[in-house]
Each structure stands twice: as C-alpha cells, then as structure tokens.
Simulated assay, not measured.
Amino acid sequence: MEDKRIRDQIFNSSDQDLRFTKEDRNKVFEQIHNPEKNKAQKKSFIFSKNLVPLTVSLLVVGLCLFLFMPSILPSKVINESSPSVTREPVVGETEFLTSLITVKSIEMENRIYLNLLLTYSKDKKMVKIVSIPHDTYAPIGINNDGSTMYDKLLFAYRFGGAENVRSTVSKLVDLPIDYYAVIDLETISALIDAMDGIDYDLQEDIRIRAISQVAFEFDKGTNHLNGEEVVALMMAATEGISLEEENLLNLMNAVMNKTENEIPPTQLKELFSKIEANVSLNGLLQNQIEINTIKTIPLSDGMVSEAEILSSTEGKHYYKFGKDFLNSVSEELTIFN
C-alpha cells in the first residue's frame, strides 16, 4: 500500500511545487507531468536489430570493444582484439565471448554513464551489442545485513570498482561477462579534443541530458561535438526517446573514422594505458579477430519508466525491466544464426 501511495503521489502531483536534486530534477519533473510515459508498453520481444557490415576503413569492432580505440595494426576487415574478445592464450572452447565497456566520470564522483554489453561469436564472426541505460534499477551492491542493494546502475562503480560493475550487469542480465574495460570520460574528451572535435548530423533540434551540466541543446543539421557531447548523445540513443537508437553506432562510426585518420599509434597507446581493464595491453596488440557484422539490440520495448519521490526536495527516476524481457535479451545476445 505504501508503494502504491508513493506512485499515486507521483502521478497526481502536477500542481505541487517540488524541488529535486540536480541529478534527477529534469527526469522526475518530466515523469510527474507526463504520467502516460510511465505506463509499461507490453510488446512482444522482437528486437529491431541494426545490421552493420564492416566496410573499408571502418573498423567498428575495434571501436566497440575498446570504445573509441581504432586498429593500431594495419587491416582491412580484421582488427585488433580488445578486452572482450581476447584472452591470453586465446580460448577456443566457448562458442562466444562477452565484454562490458563502461564510461565513467572522475569529475562526477566515478558515476558510470555508458554501458555497452557485447557478445562475439567466433564461428559466425558476429558481434551483438546492447547498451544499458545508466538509470537502470540494478543490484549494485550488498547492504550491511547481507541483503542485495538496489539502485541506479549509475552508482555501481562506487561499490567495488570495475569488478562490481561487471558483477552488477552480469546479475542484471543473468549472463557471465568475460572481459571489461572502464574508460574515464576525461580520457575520451582528451581523445576528441586531440581531433578538434567531431562533426555529426542530427535530424532535428533536440535537448538531451548532459553529465557535468544539466543538459545540452543541439540544432538540426551538423553539430561540432566535444567528448562529453558525444557520450551524452550515445546515452540519449541508448534510451531511444529523444534520439533514435541507430545513432549509437552512427556516432561510433563518426568517431572511429576521424580517430583512425588523425591520431597516431603512439598517442593511442598512451590513452590505452589509462583504461582500466582485465586484459593486458600486449594481449590486445598481439591478437586479431575477424568480424563480418554487428547487430544492436535496443531495450526501449522493455523499458518501464518510473519516478520515485524521496522527500519534498528529492526524487529519483529509474528504468526497470521485467525478468522475462531481460531473459529474452540474454537469449538474443547468445544466439547467432
């Protein structure tokens, strides 16, 4: 009954003068005044996958598996392996390997803002990607009494670093994760700054949530982006609300093309050393994999948006996913036809 009263209070509070924290103000405000967005849309679990072949100089897998890191070794459609698809020695007994790529911000108290979960089929030479919203309600730690602590995935790094982020996502989707890489937003910003920014075309005017400030506003047409703006747009594409999900790979492609052409290998190796991962740099540089296609798996069909009022001055916004939907996501990630 108490949960129901809280929910009713959220959905019927349009006349209240509520003030929320900087982090959640905009999200909760939107939920309060647009209760229809909180209704769960029951849809069949048919994922609208974007099929992206690797072509010419676009080594998308290198980008995905180590986010913005292009191939240091010369290649056409074969690129260097990364923490998710290499092991020392390279394993051959499993049908697929999994990896988690996370972007966090030191400036924002090590909160994590982008989480890309990837699976790689060695037989089909295929990668599948799902991007998990940082507002996802997830098991991020253990309480003093031994019970599971639930909160936003955003805070998972605080309760045990990169290993805890891996454990949290693994529990959420019920899927073992072989490799992880945690990249600081500051490192990504340094990379983008070294290339004098990224040009990216948007189909309409949009306002999206930022990281170090409340929001970014972009005009329709070509926008010149810095590192935080690139990550913020990828976050928006992850939610698939203000920005279509296909922009996730499009943004990766834009960064990859410019990085490959403008950043020398020595500088990339220096940036490499700043990434927290459970695989060595030597392993990354010595092994290669071949990729034919990449498929993205959006989560928007299963997202249930909820807003919770904590007090008269605080509120939180979450995305929650049903167990059946997450099971379907895990199945989709691990079946390669």
Rank of each mutant, 00 (worst) to 15 (best):
V60F: 11
F11K: 06
Q41E: 14
F11D: 07
R19S: 12
M108F: 02
M108G: 00
L65V: 09
N12D: 14
H33S: 07
I78M: 02
T94F: 09
T98H: 14
K22R: 14
K22M: 03
K43G: 12
S99F: 01
A40R: 09
P89A: 07
K43A: 15
S44P: 02
T55R: 10
E88W: 06
P53Y: 10
V85E: 13
E93P: 00
E36D: 11
E36I: 03
F11A: 03
V28L: 03
S105A: 12
V56K: 15
S48I: 01
T94Y: 07
N50Y: 06
E80M: 12
S44E: 07
K22G: 07
S71Q: 06
K22H: 13
I46E: 11
P89Y: 04
I10W: 04
K76A: 09
L59P: 01
K39H: 06
R87Y: 00
P53N: 11
I10C: 09
Q16H: 02
V28H: 06
I78L: 04
L100N: 02
E107F: 08
S84Q: 08
L73S: 15
Q16V: 04
S48C: 01
T94G: 00
L65N: 15
E107I: 04
R25Q: 15
E80G: 10
I101A: 06
S48Q: 13
I32N: 05
K76D: 13
E109H: 12
V61N: 04
T21R: 04
V85D: 15
T55V: 13
L67G: 03
S57N: 15
V91A: 07
V28D: 03
E93L: 04
D8T: 09
I46V: 14
V77E: 15
F66T: 08
N34H: 10
V85W: 10
E88N: 13
V61H: 03
D8C: 04
S13H: 03
K39S: 03
T55Q: 09
S71L: 05
E95Y: 02
L73C: 05
S48K: 11
I106D: 14
S57M: 11
K49D: 05
Q16L: 11
F20A: 07
V56D: 15
D24I: 05
I106M: 07
T86G: 08
N12V: 10
F29R: 02
S81C: 03
K43F: 02
E36N: 06
